[in-house]
Simulated scan of single mutants.
Amino acid sequence: MKNLSSIVGLSLAVMVGSSFAADAPNIVGTWEATSGYWSQTGTDSNPAPAELSQKSVQQNIIIQVQQGNAFHGTTIRYSGESRNLAGVIGPDGRSLFFSIDYGAGTGLLSEEGNQMRYCGTTIQVTRNFAFCTIFKRVK
């Protein structure tokens, strides 16, 4: 009976674990911004007026390399400035977690895998900045 309990317990653990480990979708390629918005203010130590925009801050995300659920690439801003990006795809196969220069963000892939939502914030003492951008896969 003890062996049967162990087998049933192990089987349940495998089934539960596998339900959280979705295969990672392939997100390598170029993603183009279709819409976005952002907000910016100064800080206590660096006062500045608030700015609000209904435009995306990024123009493209280029995912260059992916291995399983881990990936890296570059974000290209409308100013032409690029920033390195490191990221992972969550166990559900749709949640995204990003780290970029001076910031962090989260996102979500559409069920079809052709659209990406990416929102983030800065981690700086000179300004507060938050944004959201919707991207579509272009290649």
Rank of each mutant, 00 (worst) to 15 (best):
T122D: 13
G93M: 03
C132L: 02
I134K: 09
L52Q: 14
T75F: 08
S45G: 03
T30F: 00
F129Y: 15
V57H: 06
R83Y: 12
C132Q: 04
Q54C: 01
G107C: 07
G36Q: 06
R117V: 11
V138L: 04
G90L: 04
I89N: 01
Q58I: 05
I63W: 02
Q64D: 15
N60W: 03
N60G: 00
R127Q: 12
G17P: 00
L4C: 08
G68A: 07
Y78K: 11
N84Y: 08
Y118M: 12
E111V: 09
V65H: 10
I100F: 14
V125C: 00
G113Y: 01
V8T: 09
V88R: 09
T106G: 11
N128E: 04
G120I: 02
A50L: 11
G87S: 07
A22M: 10
I123E: 02
T41V: 07
N128F: 07
L12K: 15
T121M: 10
S18Q: 12
P25N: 04
V65T: 14
R83V: 12
T30N: 11
W31T: 06
R137W: 01
V8G: 00
S79V: 02
N60K: 15
T43W: 07
A33E: 10
Q115Y: 00
D44Q: 14
K55L: 13
G105R: 06
G80K: 10
F98D: 03
D92Q: 08
S39D: 02
Q67R: 14
V8L: 15
N114H: 08
H72W: 05
L52F: 14
N3G: 05
Q59D: 13
C132Y: 05
A86Y: 12
G105W: 00
D101N: 09
T34A: 04
V16P: 02
S35H: 08
L52E: 15
E111P: 08
I61S: 04
R94N: 06
L12A: 11
S5Q: 14
A130E: 02
D23F: 01
A70V: 14
S79L: 05
F71K: 06
I134N: 13
Y78R: 09
E81F: 12
T34Q: 13
G87W: 03
D92C: 04
G107W: 02
L108V: 09
S11T: 14
S45F: 04
N46R: 13
I27A: 07
G103R: 05
S95L: 04
A104D: 03
F71Y: 15
E112W: 01
T126S: 13
S99V: 14
I27Q: 07
N69V: 04
S35G: 15
E51G: 00
Y102T: 06
L10D: 06
A22L: 07
Y118R: 01
F129N: 04
Q67M: 06
F98W: 11
G29W: 01
A24Y: 01
K55T: 14
K136A: 05
Q66Y: 01
A48I: 01
S11H: 02
I134A: 03
D92W: 08
S95N: 10
N26H: 04
I134M: 13
G9E: 11
F20D: 01
S99Q: 13
F97N: 10
D44F: 13
P91E: 01
G87D: 03
F129W: 11
